[in-house]
Structure formats: structure tokens, C-alpha cells
């Protein structure tokens, strides 16, 4: 039997412990991405004939539609992230600071309940509410606010509502944990020293919660940017969402090379935005990741 403390044994043990994570990392993430990367740098020049080229990336910049959809997706995602932050902050504040014990657990559960239902069903629920023959347009007509039922689906605002709804929990959780760790006496001290509600929020609460805010924003932004279902169901076929363009390339056009290139462009975009976000908020990546 090998000695417990020996170096080889420990290395072996470490290897075994890490094995599931490594298999997952290499097999499920690294290899498919490598394959996609190779795919994106290839061009079909004849039946079954391929050559290396940057043609897929050139198409993206040459065709204004792709570029516009790309920018549009980024902008709407940023807006959705901002809205989610604005809505989630009071919720997280209420759970972390204003309630205790059972009430606080109940509020958490209320945030969690929508996630017991699949995303498809949740989104279809919104469709039932918002479509022309749906609940909300009918209510508006019966209240006399509109004369005829209004189609509320397939608008940018509808996409935003759906995205914020889907993302809310992922913002509330990191915000809650960072607000929870804020000592109440710091808030009282700031107030005692003459701070008003707004200055206390700006000078004490937000600086303390910054890693949590950044963490929540990164997660929500990535989820939103990569969201397919909400955008295509609530936004319709013409929602012009970038993941739909990728889907079209892969599935409708069967142009895997173009789809792979788009996929990498989206990855580059989200990495760039996360980097920018960290730079602007002055946060460290490791610090933020420990909050998610």
C-alpha cells in the first residue's frame, strides 16, 4: 500500500478529484469550441472542398444587416441589464435589510417560484397575456383605454419585459449576498454623520455592494445576450436578435461556417463587454466571481 503522504499518491488523488471537472471542461467546452473555431475559418470552395479563409468574418462586416443586429442585440442587452439592476436592487434590499427569518425566506421563494416552470412555458405565459386576443389587451379595452385590442407582442419593449423577468433572480441573488454582508451600523453611522438617504446609498451602500452589482450585471448580461427563446417568442421572427442569426445560419441555411463565425463574434462581444464593465466599475475579476 502506498504511503499516504507520498507525492505521487497526492498527485494521483488530486487528479482523480479534478477528473470530472477536467472531462467536462475539455470534452464539453474546449473541444466543441476548438472545432467551431476551425469551422469558422473555413470556406467552401466546391462540393466537399474547403480552404482556410476569413470570408465568414468578412461577410459579417460587409453585410450591414448582421452588424446592425449585432449592435442592436448588445444595446438591448445592456438596457435589459440596467433595468434588471434597477428592479432587483429594491427587492434585494428588502430581503437583506428590511425583513428577517421567515418573511425573508418567503420573499426569496417568490423570486424563485417562476424558475420551477420551464422557460418555454414561462414565455408562453407572457404570450397569453400580451397577444392581441390576450388578457392585457382585453383589460385595456374594457377599461376604455384603447378602442380595439392592441397587439403587444413583437415589440422591443416586450422583449425587454421578457428578458428582465427571466434574469431577475440572477441579479437578486448576488445583490442580496453583498447587501446582507453590509453591517447595518455602517448605514447608521453614515446617517448619523449627516448623510441623507441618497448620499448614504451613493457613498456607503453602492461601494460596498459593487462586487455583487458587477457580478449580477455580468451574469444577466451574458444570459440576455445569449438568450434565444424569449427574444424569438416575444419578439417574433423579425426580432433581429443575434442568436437568431446564428440559429438561421446553422439550421435554416445549413451554413455552419458562417454560424460558427457568428458564434465567436458573440463570444468576443460578451468578453469585451465584461472587460469593459470591470474596468469601468474598478472591480477585480476574482473578487466579482467569488460573489456569483
Amino acid at each position: 500500500m502506498a504511503e499516504v503522504g507520498s507525492k505521487t499518491t497526492r498527485l494521483l488523488l488530486l487528479g482523480l478529484l479534478l477528473a470530472p471537472a477536467l472531462v467536462w471542461l475539455v470534452g464539453v467546452i474546449l473541444l466543441p469550441h476548438l472545432d467551431l473555431a476551425l469551422l469558422s475559418f473555413r470556406e467552401r470552395i466546391g462540393p466537399g472542398e474547403f480552404s482556410w479563409s476569413l470570408a465568414q468574418y468578412r461577410t459579417f462586416f460587409a453585410e450591414p444587416l448582421y452588424w446592425d443586429v449585432f449592435v442592436r442585440t448588445a444595446v438591448i442587452s445592456v438596457i435589459a441589464t440596467g433595468l434588471t439592476l434597477l428592479i432587483a436592487f429594491p427587492i434585494a434590499w428588502t430581503i437583506a435589510k428590511l425583513t428577517r427569518g421567515r418573511v425573508s425566506a418567503l420573499l426569496f421563494a417568490v423570486c424563485l417560484i417562476p424558475f420551477w416552470v420551464s422557460e418555454t412555458v414561462r414565455t408562453l405565459g407572457w404570450m397569453i397575456l400580451l397577444r392581441e386576443t390576450g388578457v392585457l389587451p382585453a383589460v385595456l379595452v374594457s377599461l376604455g383605454i384603447t378602442d380595439t385590442p392592441v397587439e403587444m407582442l413583437y415589440r422591443d419593449a416586450t422583449i425587454l419585459v421578457g428578458l428582465v423577468y427571466t434574469s431577475l433572480l440572477f441579479m437578486v441573488v448576488p445583490l442580496y449576498s453583498s447587501l446582507e454582508s453590509l453591517d447595518d451600523s455602517l448605514i447608521e453611522a453614515a446617517y448619523d454623520l449627516g448623510g441623507s438617504g441618497w448620499t448614504v446609498l451613493r457613498t456607503v451602500v453602492i461601494p460596498h455592494a459593487a462586487p455583487g452589482i458587477t457580478a449580477g450585471c455580468i451574469v444577466v448580461f451574458m444570459l440576455t445576450l445569449g438568450n434565444y427563446l424569449t427574444a424569438s417568442l416575444l419578439g417574433g421572427k423579425n426580432s433581429l436578435w443575434f442568436t437568431e442569426q446564428i440559429y438561421t445560419q446553422f439550421i435554416t441555411r445549413f451554413n455552419w461556417e458562417q454560424g460558427a463565425a457568428f458564434g465567436f463574434l458573440l463570444l468576443a462581444l460578451s468578453s469585451l463587454m465584461v472587460w469593459l464593465g470591470l474596468r469601468l466599475s474598478g472591480q477585480k475579476f476574482a473578487d466579482v466571481m467569488s460573489r456569483t
Binding site: 455602517l186 447608521e188 453611522a189 453614515a190 448619523d192 454623520l193 449627516g194 448623510g195 457613498t203 461601494p207
Partner: peptide
């Protein structure tokens, strides 16, 4: 309100602002 009273408090755990 506390922020308008001519009173200041030294807290039990001091409550110095760690971000400053």
C-alpha cells in the same frame, strides 16, 4: 432625524467605512 441632530455616535464596532 439623526442626520439633523447635533449629536454624533461612536458605534460598538466603531463602524468605520472600510471603503474609505
Amino acid at each position: 432625524p439623526p442626520n439633523r441632530r447635533p449629536v454624533n455616535m461612536v458605534f460598538q464596532q466603531l463602524a468605520l467605512f472600510p471603503m474609505m
